[in-house]
Amino acid sequence: MSQNYLKVKGLSKKFGNVVALNNFSLEVARGELVTLLGPSGCGKTTALRLVAGLERQDSGTIFLESRDLTLIPAHHRNMGMVFQAYSLFPNLTVAENVAFGLQMRKVDRSARIKKAHELLDLVGLDSQSARFPHQLSGGQQQRVALARALAFEPEILLLDEPLSALDAQVRSNLREEIRRLQLSLGTTTLFVTHDQEEAMSISDRVGVMNEGRLEQIDTPDDLYNHPKNVFIANFVGLMNQVSGTKTGKSVSVFGANLKVKNEVVTDGRVLVYIRPEFVELECTESDADAKVISRLFLGSVSQVICQLNDGTIVHSLLSSRMSAEFAPGIRVKIRVNEDEVLVSNG
C-alpha cells in the first residue's frame, strides 16, 4: 500500500503547559483503517481533532494528498467524525440526522432522504428512521452517528472511542460492523481507542501512542510479535515480566540463556518480557520454578496462572488438552520457548 493519502508531519500541540502532542507524524493509505492506541491522556483525541480541523496545531503540517489542510476550517475538510459522547442532534429525527451533512452541502431533499435511508439500511436501522435520538439505545445512537458521518462520503472517517460508552456485547458487535462497513465502502479511517483488543481486532495497522508521540506503527501481528520497546510490549497483549540476569548480549532466566533484543540496558538484574504462549510448563517434584495457582479454561486454549517462588505471577497459554494436568497446587518447571527477548532495568 502506498502510504500517501493522509500525511501528518511533526504535529505539536500544547494546552497551556500540557504537551498533548509532541512531534507526531503519521501516514495513512487510501482505504486503510489505522488505529491510534494508547493510554488515556496520551494525545489520541487531540491528534484526531487536529485532522478534523476542530483544533489548530502549534506546529507541523497535515496534507490530504497534495492539499495542505492547515488553513482549511473544519466544515470544509469533509471529514466524518464520530464522537465518544452521544452527539446526535436531539431536535432532528434519525433520518434527518443522517441527512444533515448533505443538507449542509445543499443536496436536494429527495436525494438526501434517499441517501439517508441507504445508510440507515447499512447500519440496520432503517426501521427507526422516523424516531428521535432519545428513543434509541446507546448502541443504536452510535450507529446513527456512524451513518451520519458516512453519508456525505467523507475523505476520512474519524472515530474517537465511539464504543467506549457501550456495554461489552454491543461493543464487540459494533466494532465488527464498523470494520465490515469500512471495508465495503473503502473509506479511509482513523480510529482512536485505549482498548488494545479493539485496536488489534479491526485495524490494518495500529499506531501505539505514548505521551504525545507515536511509538510504533505496524500491523497488529508485527506489533504483537515485534514490539519495538517495553512500553509497547506491555501495552499490546498480555505480557509476563520476570526477573533475570543480563550479561552482555544475553540474559539468563529460568536456567536458560536467551538473546537480548534491545540494547540500551545495563548488565545485572533486569526484567525479562515473555509472552504467555512462549511459557511452557512441565510437572516436577524436585527443582520447581513455580506453583500453579489457577487454570482458566478458554475453549481450545487455556491459561495457566503460576506463582514463582519470589511471588511473581506468570501466565502460560497452552492448548487445553495439554494443560489439563496443571491443576492448582501442582509444582512446575518453566521453559521459555523463545530465543530473543526484550529486557529492561525496570
Binding site: 476542530l54 471529514m79 459522547a85 452527539s87 442532534f89 444533515f100 451533512g101 443538507q103 458521518a149 456525505f152
Partner: peptide, 26 residues
C-alpha cells in the same frame, strides 16, 4: 460536542447556530 458534530458535518458557524443550537435551546 453538538457544535463540533455540526461543523465536521459541513455546517459553518452561522448554520450551526441557526439550524442546530437555536432549535435545541428553543
Amino acid at each position: 460536542t453538538l457544535v463540533e458534530a455540526a461543523r465536521s458535518s459541513g455546517a459553518n458557524w452561522r448554520r450551526t447556530i441557526t439550524t442546530v443550537i437555536v432549535p435545541i435551546t428553543r
